[in-house]
Nucleic acid binder design. Structure first.
Lengths: 219, 219, 219, 219
DNA sequence: AATGAATGAGGCTTCATTCAT
DNA sequence: CATGAATGAAGCCTCATTCAT
């Protein structure tokens, strides 16, 4: 039995270390951003030596890239949950709130903002961000298409368009949240996010009538 | 007289140099981001010596901060124009398209993304971004409030809320554009931006009448 | 009995390990040289852990120094054989070819070159190289002095001088072999070495008679 | 006139710096070898900052490679002189003695040994060493072929073979000199080098007769 | 005896900034 | 005003060595 434990705990420990490093890196990245964060910062935060980080990651860039791919995994997880939500609204609530929600300790808004900035210059990260975004929109599109509400959308509004509006405005608001982060608390920001969703909701889904009007606007 | 000329031409020339440096910096920042851009990169781009940059700016950070404030000025200028647009739609078009429009050569998306990322850690930049955002929303709110369309919004939709939706989704879409920048051209991105505005438009404003007006907006 | 076995097998096993490490180190050194070879490289090559190397050697430098002294032992061994060779030519052939002969896989030219370079700065290694060289020349001198051929050398040619010429040109050619190692195969290099010896031979020894002897040497 | 001086001294100064760095590097390399020498060592020796070295050389490896190519240039220069020597003996004397002669301050034997060791692992250096060697042998071959002495060589001895023997034994002796450098002075080493040449000389060139003998040795 | 995770000093290199010309 | 050579702190990464297991 001890043998079994050992067999299990050896890779376990290794994985634990990896996570410890990633957690420390996230803390640092959230605090100062990718580029200004030094490998030493991370090692201090993780309470290990610099050299040890290189046993688990090839380079600083590898840490960033790995962290970005973790972000994609997180998102997948959230959307998995969303798919199981009883109503579309609850599903979207989960998605738009959880998307950039806080880590145990702090919002990783800063991390996500850095990720986007990094995407502008790092091909690998750009592809990741594109995948995340694509997956995000696709999933929300599916959620909408499968829902009751999709049956009563305004004319011209297709699930994908609605999904894009939701995803984009969520992200735009997130950016806004960064600027407001020293004035607003995390829960206030979350509340605001929610409020926007509640406002968009009836515009996107409920309704039946104003077809004529819209027709003219969209040539 | 030489003295007078000098007195007059120096600040003139000085301001020109300043702009030359800023233009070069923007090109570099758009290309590689703040942190990876070196002072040397800028000096080469501006075709001057490194030392000269320090005659006009205290430090690299000062260049970044100054550039951020320029961004605010640009925005003010755009909103000034928007205010003079004949219709709300045209005004919003100006605002949401021009917001992240291209430099002579390329979109400065990367610069804006970096600005947001920087906002997460640099108090000075954060305040600037907050101001930009605030000013942006306020202006759009004013535009809406002053327009004909505001009279026919859906129930519960106030000008400020509509403004927030427009601003946020514009920004969210801009982020999306970064990830897609290697796949899409600048004009395709601009077109997409425009399409979203056209979709949001009837949702936000039309509820009953002003069809005629809108007709004219869409030639 | 177990005790006896342990007492007997431990040093045995220990010596085996030592050799295993040295063999691995030689392979690495031959491949990349002293300095670029890491302790990890050696441990991987020897299929043991890094830590274990330190049970057998105090430091990386100790491995190098020990290996250098092994080189001296090898040489002693070769010269021992040479002394038992039937003719001087065969003896010299052994000496000048075997000197830098191949490991199972490849010439350890690189190792020897590193050894010489190291000699220029490491007193311990320098002394070793001096001893090797001295021993080498002395042995060849003895071989010559004891041979038939020594009786018919050109005027002014003493055994030691002939030995020096042989040793030096052998080494010089070895250096040349390094530069040619990507163009020539190990056996081509060996053949070249041999050809030089055949050329030097009549210059150094023949002056009058022992044709018959020589005939036999070259089958 | 001052202008002319300035125009001349600007590139001059740059070249001077380059040489200053190379001189310092050579001192360090001769003292401790390539790998153990740090960029900091070189900067201290050259009495400049580390960063400045990178203004003149791309990397540490570039310094080494450049230095190696300088070695080739030196050799060319020596052979140029040799070609103008009144007799073959004097020419060879120049070549075999000067080849590894001292810098203003010290023998760069250690540098050359390191060069050979480096050749075993660095393609670029290997090619350089090959070129140096080739050029060396070719030049000596030409010297011999053009000389009076070439008319009276022992049968079977062609200029190229004689050149190879001279070059190889010179190099082998140089290696030997490293091991003896703490026991012998530079001039003693030079004298020994010269003595060997004097011994080889009559073997290689003078002569007429012993054709029959040699014939049998070389099947 | 054996492992290999962990350490941390130290190497190479970059780059913001200064300053003599 | 303008240059760009020069500086040196600081970052990333490697690797000899140690030590708990």
């Amino acid at each position: 039995m001890t043998g079994a434990m050992t067999l299990q705990s050896v890779p376990d420990h290794s994985e634990e270390r990896r996570r410890q490093i990633l957690r420390a890196a996230m803390t640092c990245f959230a605090r100062r951003g990718f580029h200004p964060t030094t490998m030493n910062d991370i090692s201090v935060e993780a309470q290990i030596s610099v050299g040890l980080i290189y046993r688990y990651f090839d380079s600083k860039d590898a840490v960033i890239t790995f962290m970005a791919s973790e972000h994609l995994d997180d998102l997948r997880h959230v959307l998995e949950q969303a798919r199981r939500a009883p109503t579309l609204f609850e599903a979207l609530e989960l998605v738009s709130i959880r998307h950039c929600e806080e880590q145990p300790e702090h919002l990783h808004l800063a991390f996500v903002a850095d990720l986007f900035a990094e995407a502008a210059r790092n091909e690998q990260v750009r592809v990741l961000v594109r995948d995340v975004t694509q997956f995000f929109i696709d999933s929300v599109t599916d959620l909408i298409a499968a829902s009751e509400e999709a049956k009563t959308v305004p004319p011209g509004m297709v699930p994908r368009t609605a999904a894009e509006i939701i995803v984009d405005s969520t992200r735009g608001m997130m950016i806004r949240a960064i600027a407001d982060s020293s004035t607003l608390t995390a829960s206030q920001i979350r509340e605001r996010q929610l409020a926007m969703l509640r406002t968009l909701w009836p515009l996107l889904f409920s309704r039946s009538a104003p077809a004529a009007r819209v027709e003219q606007v969209q040539p």
